[in-house]
């Protein structure tokens, strides 16, 4: 399958953007149902985006706007790029699908967010940026260790080969460790520390308005697709060989993950920065290390 197809159609923009919106909606809807409310209609994130893009933002110091445009676009592009590496369809895996590249691309969005926070010159933006940076470091230790365990166990850095070859024990433990990392990477409870509204407003996003915020919301939607997609695509070794069937399986599995993450988020309070970091160093890293040990000795 040509790479433009992966980038633009599946699992790229044409799939990722509506899917991201669907996930954002699902998150809000499930939370609402948990709280015995009705919740927003399914087209909500789309209208939010349209509205934000057409607000009249306030004027900024000249030359600054280019960063507000470039950083979210960079984050968006990198995240969609990471999505195209996922081993969803058997045919797309041969050429690309490198684990190292995936990790590099998935980290672009948090770095852009940290930069946006510092760029805002607001104290809340900066504290949010510091928190985001701290948490990115805290969570990447288990994240990368778990991926190394998978790569070692399957003897390859290619995501497709990992997906099909990783032994069951390593796969289960490593994926659990990866799942642990998702709430922090998606800034969900109990680890929504970097965007803790009641402490520092929206963190790095506090000073963004109109399209500047809209672009970032879009990036965040695609982040959901990419990160849940990583686990969804690595969870099942089996591929039917028929592109549509595999894609549907992948999409459904991703949505299940959204449900799981949202239910956890709905049943917890927000932890503190130190508590969150400690959790990741102890449990997240412990689990990832276990996966590594299992992959080494089994």
């Amino acid at each position: 399958m040509p790479s433009w197809f992966a980038l633009l159609i599946f699992p790229g923009f044409l799939y990722a953007v509506p899917m991201g919106w669907l996930m954002l909606w699902l998150e809000r809807k499930i939370l609402a149902r948990l709280q015995s409310r009705i919740g927003p209609p399914f087209y909500q994130p789309f209208f939010d985006f349209i509205k934000l893009m057409t607000k009249e933002p306030l004027r900024r110091a000249s030359g600054e706007d280019i960063f507000y445009l470039l950083l979210p676009l960079l984050a968006l592009g990198a995240t969609v790029g990471s999505l195209t590496l996922l081993p969803i369809l058997p045919s797309s895996a041969s050429a690309v699908g490198d684990l190292v590249l995936f990790v590099a691309l998935v980290e672009v969005a948090p770095i852009c967010l940290v930069l946006l926070g510092f760029l805002s010159r607001s104290i809340f933006g900066q504290v949010g940026a510091i928190r985001e940076a701290t948490l990115t470091i805290a969570t990447n230790l288990p994240f990368i260790t778990a991926l190394i365990a998978l790569a070692y166990a399957s003897g390859s850095l290619r995501l497709m080969e990992i997906a099909s070859n990783a032994p069951l024990a390593t796969r289960a433990i490593a994926l659990l460790a990866l799942l642990f990392c998702l709430p922090i990477k998606l800034r969900l409870n109990p680890f929504s520390v970097a965007n803790a509204e009641q402490e520092i407003y929206q963190g790095a996003l506090t000073e963004l308005d109109g399209w500047r915020l809209g672009l970032w919301e879009l990036t965040h939607a695609v982040e959901w697709v990419a990160l849940s997609g990583l686990i969804a695509s690595l969870a099942v070794p089996w591929r039917s060989g028929q592109a549509i069937l595999d894609a549907i399986l992948f999409a459904l599995l991703s949505l299940v993950l959204v449900v799981v993450l949202t239910v956890i988020a709905g049943a917890t309070a927000r932890l503190k920065l130190l508590q969150a970091s400690r959790f990741y160093w102890r449990w997240g890293f412990g689990l990832a290390l276990l996966a590594l040990v299992v992959s080494l000795f089994l």
């Binding site: 939370l31 948990l34 709280q35 015995s36 409310r37 409870n189 109990p190 929504s192 803790a196 509204e197 009641q198 709905g266 049943a267 917890t268 309070a269 927000r270």
Partner: peptide, 16 residues
């Protein structure tokens, strides 16, 4: 308090 803890579900439970 639940709202400040970021515990939205508990916040809603209290308000119900």
């Amino acid at each position: 308090a639940a709202h400040i803890l970021g515990f939205q579900t508990l916040f809603m439970t209290c308000f119900r």
